[in-house]
Amino acid sequence: MSTDLETPLPTKFDVSDFDPRARRARSIRRLLLGTIALVAVLGLPWWVYPPIAVDIAAWALFAISVDLLLGFVGALSFGHAAFWGVSAYSAGLIAQNFGLPFPVAIVGGAIAAMIIAVPIGYLAVRRSGIYFAMVTLAFAQMIWFVANQWKDVTGGENGLQGVPKSFFGIELIETEAFYFYYVVVILIVAGAWLAWRIVNSPFGRVLVAIRDNSARTRALGYDVEKYKLIAFVLSAGIAGVAGGVFAISHGFVSLQELDWTTSGKVVLMTVLGGMGTLWGGPVGAAVIVLLEDRLATSGFDGIGIITGSIFILCVLLFRRGIWGTAKNLIDRARAGYAKRRS
């Protein structure tokens, strides 16, 4: 109560703004993380078969879009395949019918995903917890059904075949996946950057408040449903970029992209990597895509048993996921080190 006006303002907040050593440590940490991320992004097609590298990149961004909702709004979407799939079909159709360069087709697909997300989100954000998950799942199943029936456009069970990879007049063929990766990775990084920007914006601050206590956020004058809807549509757009990249990369779109197992797989990646971190999704995506590739090439067909077991282990033992657990260990080690020094 007796805070004297003479007392200088406290310097405890944003310690790093004032303490040069903490500031240096933080910038070193950022530089290190940035370098690792850059090397991983640029080096990926050198280490793994380039089409697999594109798959990892696409799934990584898809997982980031799910984490934006799960980790920062506290809403588990179990129907994100709808946005990945709608964008995949739309991007494929745009590339096929209009002969546009594939980055344009991918952006078009993302816009289609956002448009479809408006009515779905409008109904879903009014619910929370398991009901939110069920509403999103129900809509995704509905879209799957429509795609299955609407054979003239989607090709039904045969899928959409022969999607070209034209890039401003150049037709990329399968063997050029290595170069294709470096073009699409720009879109992937842009999507990831957008997610990062959203999380670290005033809007992101409101999202965290909604996650922690939505009634209180309303009492402060925030229209919680509007914020959740915007987050939902943005997340769908990011998922759409990922789905478009996947479709163009494979050159065809199948019903699998709209299947509920696709929604499940991306949630698995997000939780495995560590939700609420944004970085976790790409780690989880890399692990699952590589694992599936190894298991498939070795002729083992019980992939679901392996990924399912990993998921159960992760939920039981590493609630924070790979990234979250690693970060926790590093933080603890640093705290211990600081304690010993003082």
Binding site: N200, S201, P202, F203, R205, G221, Y222, Y227, L234
Partner: peptide
């Protein structure tokens, strides 16, 4: 967060949270 509420700043997902 409370002070930003009447300003509409909360909707700007493209701005840095430093604007707060």
């Amino acid at each position: 967060l409370a002070l930003a509420s009447p300003t509409g700043l909360g909707l700007r997902f493209w701005r840095s949270s430093r604007t707060l």
